[in-house]
Design a protein around this nucleic acid. Structure first.
Lengths: 228, 228
DNA sequence: GTATATTGTTAGACGCATCTAACAAAATTA
DNA sequence: TAATTTTGTTAGATGCGTCTAACAATATAC
């Protein structure tokens, strides 16, 4: 099997891939906080193992095998997060660190059991989709709240950032997954948004926040989306 | 904190200590399947860290600090085993391997939560005591079934071996923790025992098995235990 | 109490994942 | 397109945990 270290590279390659499925050495290096030469040499190793497609000076891509391996790790991470929230009473802001460790546990049975006890959840507590047992994930491309228009009625579908700080911020504002909001107005100066939800008629969300909230648009004021 | 590797040394030192709390380099080496020179050098390292008391050519002993660290690891292991059995429906024969990995997870909260959800269990699914949050364990010194006398009525309190093979063997014979048995007879030739329990009037247990079963004696035929 | 066997240590090497320093290729800017 | 910046690679070193080979101390046997 792959070592913990290799698994972290695979996960990063999976998570930070662009639309072509590619990641640069520099990006990987920064995300993992590992210097570039180290990344280069690890890419050679993973390439030998058939997990990545690597050619000098070209961006890195996971092979089908590597994508599957990475998907399974992410499946374990997200199932764990869901289990911790749903079955053990943890808050969504406190599960990432634990899942980060549990994702490396080698026991298909453990995670299958979580999946079963959770009734085969489709997404984790942060709205991210849970890959299937083959590591395959079908991604719904939700827009960011920041891209929505005044008058849009939306449902909070996922958050882009799972840091405890950010999630605690949302907790304080009583913003949960599935909360329905209406975009009241946008401040042109700083692109902050005023939204209404629950019993809150006008909460202000900075651009930094609205960019991290992925939403499903339920209804829109103007039905024509694009017209020049 | 201590690395996974250090943790495994600490656990072994804790588990294989004799009545003086000592372990030889040779024993550690064999239990961990690591060559003696490697053990020696690791002992120097752990000694520097104040976790073991080590002098050349002398047996090794955990310090109070080391004992606490080891106890906490074992606490995590045993809580996990109990959680897997009680809350996730695993059989007692399938939890050791998983707990072996989970015991290294750094998250006091996770194990505190298990402890709470399990209502502060005193022992794991194999009857081994669960150390408290300070790593302290109070050990009840149960006798082996093999040391009991004909006519003794006993309760299965713990098993000494947690291998899947052994536990599956007990499953097949419907022997669980807390099963009450009566020692019917002992075969002088091979010291195998015939015991009765549940609806089984005479099950044969080899010496190899009866040595691995720790029991609480409920009643004995002759009340005088020792008389020359 | 010496000889032998067992146990433990020292010395030196190795693989892995990491680093820094120096260099090379590719991309960007002028 | 030439100069410069950015990105990536090569070479060589380091720390960790491991090993084997050789030697040393302790325990056991005779």
């Amino acid at each position: 099997m792959n070592s913990l270290i290799e698994e972290n590279y695979l996960k990063a390659l999976f998570s930070y891939a662009n639309d072509q499925g590619e990641v640069s050495v520099k990006d990987l290096s920064e995300k993992l906080d590992i210097k570039m030469p180290t990344v280069t040499s690890m890419m050679k190793k993973l390439s030998t193992k058939g997990l990545v497609q690597y050619t000098s000076y070209k961006p890195i891509k996971l092979t089908a095998k590597g994508r599957k391996a990475a998907g399974i790790i992410i499946r374990k991470h997200r199932l764990t997060e869901m289990y911790l929230v749903e079955k053990m009473g943890f808050g969504w802001e406190n599960v990432h660190e634990i899942a980060e460790q549990m994702e490396h546990v080698k026991s298909p049975d453990l995670f299958d059991r979580m999946d079963e006890l959770l009734d085969h959840p489709k997404h984790d507590p942060h709205g991210s989709p849970i890959p299937d047992k083959n590591g395959k994930v079908d991604w719904i491309n939700y827009p960011k709240l920041s891209e929505c228009k005044v008058g849009d009625r939306v449902r909070l579908a996922a958050v882009v950032n799972s840091s405890a700080d950010f999630l605690s911020f949302l907790n304080k504002r009583e913003l949960q997954l599935d909360t329905e909001m209406e975009l009241v107005s946008v401040e042109p100066f700083d692109n902050s948004m005023i939204v209404s939800y629950h019993d809150k008629p006008n909460e202000t969300l900075s651009l930094l926040v609205s960019e991290k909230l992925l939403v499903e648009v339920i209804s829109s004021l103007d039905s024509n989306q694009q017209s020049p």
